[in-house]
């Protein structure tokens, strides 16, 4: 796991809405695209605040959920890479 700090790009907005059930979305407010999330991916993305490094984010994420740590680590790394590739998360912060 790396010690870089990431934050949500200003082109994106996280959304949690209470309809008949709770829905989680990520909006690209520039091109209008919408990504569907679930609680796990929403919580994960919300932890990237531009202050914590990726190690700290995973530690906090791991503390929030009960599951197989190795699986969580693989999922975390895969999603982190996807979000970096799509420039949803950007490098920066303190």
């Amino acid at each position: 796991m790396e010690n870089k700090v990431y934050a949500l790009s200003s082109s994106y907005s996280l959304f949690k809405g209470e309809f008949n059930d709770i829905k989680y979305y990520l909006f690209n407010i520039e091109d209008g695209s919408i990504y569907r999330l679930n609680e796990v991916s929403y919580d994960m993305l919300a932890l990237f605040d531009g202050k914590r490094d990726a190690n700290k984010v995973f530690t906090l994420f791991n503390d929030m959920y009960q599951g197989e740590k190795d699986t969580m680590m693989i999922d975390f790394k895969n999603l982190l890479q996807t979000w970096l590739d799509k420039e949803i998360l950007i490098t920066g912060g303190e």
């Binding site: 919408i34 609680e39 796990v40 929030m64 009960q66 599951g67 999922d75």
Partner: peptide, 28 residues
């Protein structure tokens, strides 16, 4: 441990049939 949520595979999928409008949001 009792306060932890049950882990599920994270979902991240682009919606193909729906877009977001900043204008509609600010003012289906």
């Amino acid at each position: 441990e009792g306060n932890k949520k049950e882990y599920q595979t994270p979902v991240f999928e682009e919606e193909q049939e729906m877009n977001f409008s900043k204008e509609i949001w600010e003012e289906c």
